[in-house]
């Protein structure tokens, strides 16, 4: 067995609660044109997918959390959620 395996990572970055989201508001205002007037609370964000070679899932999560916190999200206005999928677990 190899000493490290490749884990799939999904990082979702979203604006913190209370931070105005001009993009989300604009999207929400466009929805009635689709005939969907009941949609509310639209918040725009970003999703990042990448692979990490790590000894185990905890190691992969630790590394991915560093990537998310130090680069992918600006903690002043954003928060991030990290999901790690073990090799062979499918998506």
């Amino acid at each position: 067995m190899a000493s490290s395996e490749l884990f799939s990572v999904l990082v979702e970055v979203r604006l913190r609660e209370g931070i105005a989201d001009p993009q989300g508001s604009t999207i929400e205002r466009a929805l009635p044109a689709l005939g969907l007037g009941g949609v509310s609370g639209v918040r725009a964000g970003k999703a990042f997918r990448f692979d990490i070679a790590a000894a185990d899932e905890a190691d992969a999560l630790a590394q991915a959390t560093v990537v998310a916190a130090r680069l992918l999200a600006n903690p002043v206005i954003e928060e991030s959620a990290v999901t790690v999928t073990a090799p062979g677990a499918g998506v």
Binding site: I19, A20, P22, Q23, T26, N74, V76, I77
Partner: peptide, 10 residues
């Protein structure tokens, strides 16, 4: 401190 976001009104 702070951050610069997209302009109000995009």
């Amino acid at each position: 401190p702070g951050a610069l976001q997209k302009n109000r009104g995009l």
